[in-house]
């Protein structure tokens, strides 16, 4: 039964464009969906390998800019050598966005995981800031703060069979499909040998090495997948909003992703989805209720603190434990020792 529940949910979500006529709600669902993809990608690193990528928005932004630039085409001079790219089909631009972001993840991983932990946090955060500065200052390429405008929407096929993702209902379906695929990718990785290796290096690195696990290799793999997925989210964002400026690199977006992952439950598959839904919808709901922005932020902050304080491992693990506790014959020992399930 519980095996079909997720698919039932997917079918329900997929049906939304057929009966939801309020485009504002669809808009929120699309942006939430994009954020959830980004949060899921962050969760692979933060939840499963235990590495805090505080520059995660860099991969998102690189995906956004790569896809925008390739679909618009550009002309720059690098050391007085002209270099230009003619506009490419959007599907190709998005694919390249994923590859470029993944490659960036590989480079950051190679660089940062020589010295892990706090250094990874610092390297990732500095990297995001450097990329933002490039986006602001390399005006010839990025238009700087003037933003890249008129980014084309994704269309597939031609003529009669043309499928356009310009309007909200169709774009929603696209975003949902990408989210489902991302979820499956992560689920398959974490439930495999590679996922066990990632868990092992997070829980006890020395022990992981002693059983022959190449710790750095799995950290790099996780970073590549995570970065590529964040890049895909960025590409989706670009072709949805159809304008991109250096603000996509703002630190606040990384913070939002981290909040989604931690409140939902890091290291769980459903965690980023639950956290993403809450922190994707709540701000919009508050705005819809015409509450003043300062109050909105306070409510947002209090909600976050309450969740983290009362459910330190996040909402999803708390629900899982609640359900496990309801079942008769459950492992009494694990529950009678309050610290036993905590780290």
């Amino acid at each position: 039964m519980s095996r079909f529940l997720p698919w039932l949910l997917v079918v329900l979500l997929a049906s939304v464009p057929f009966w939801m006529t309020d485009y504002y709600v669809l808009h929120i669902m699309i942006t939430t969906c994009i954020f959830i993809i980004a949060a899921m990608s962050l969760n692979l690193l933060l939840g499963y390998t235990g590495q805090l990528s505080l520059g995660h928005v860099a991969f998102f932004g690189i995906g956004a800019y790569t896809s925008a630039l390739l679909s618009l085409g550009f002309q720059v001079n690098v050391f007085n050598v002209p270099f230009g790219v003619t506009p490419k089909p959007v599907w190709f631009a998005m694919l390249m966005a994923v590859i470029v972001a993944g490659f960036t993840g590989w480079a950051i991983g190679k660089l940062a995981f020589r010295v892990r932990g706090a250094y990874f946090v610092i390297v990732s955060i500095s990297f995001a800031e450097v990329v933002r500065m490039v986006a602001v200052n390399w005006v010839e390429l990025t238009q700087g703060p003037m933003a890249l405008n008129n980014i084309p929407a994704l269309t597939l096929g031609t003529g009669e069979f043309e499928l356009s993702f310009l309007r909200k209902p169709s774009f929603y379906s696209l975003a949902l499909a990408v989210a489902v695929i991302s979820y499956i990718i992560i689920a398959r990785i974490v439930n495999s040998r590679a996922g066990r290796a990632m868990n092992a290096l997070r829980e006890n690195e020395s022990l992981a090495m002693s059983v022959g696990i190449d710790v750095t290799r799995y950290l790099v793999i996780a970073t590549i997948v995570s970065a590529a997925m964040a890049g895909m989210a960025g590409a989706l964002y670009t072709h949805y909003i159809r304008i991109v400026d250096p603000d996509v690199f703002l630190f606040i977006y990384t913070v939002t992703m981290v909040i989604m992952v931690i409140t939902g439950g890091k290291g769980t598959l459903a965690g980023p989805i639950v956290g993403g839904v809450i922190f994707g919808f709540v701000p919009e709901a508050l705005r819809a209720m015409a509450i003043k922005p300062e109050i909105q932020w306070i409510i947002y902050g209090v909600l976050m603190i309450l969740i983290v304080y009362f459910l330190p491992r996040g909402i999803v693990p708390a629900i899982e434990r609640f359900w496990a506790g309801q079942k008769p014959g459950d492992d009494e020992a694990a529950r009678s020792v309050p610290g036993a399930l905590q780290k």
């Binding site: 066990r196 290796a197 868990n199 829980e203 022990l207 992981a208 002693s210 059983v211 696990i213 780290k343």
Partner: peptide, 17 residues
């Protein structure tokens, strides 16, 4: 030294990497 949060079985599976 064991992977504390995993089950005994998952521990061994991890060791079989």
């Amino acid at each position: 030294s064991v992977f504390q949060e995993r089950t005994v079985f998952q521990n061994v599976l991890t060791g079989l990497h």
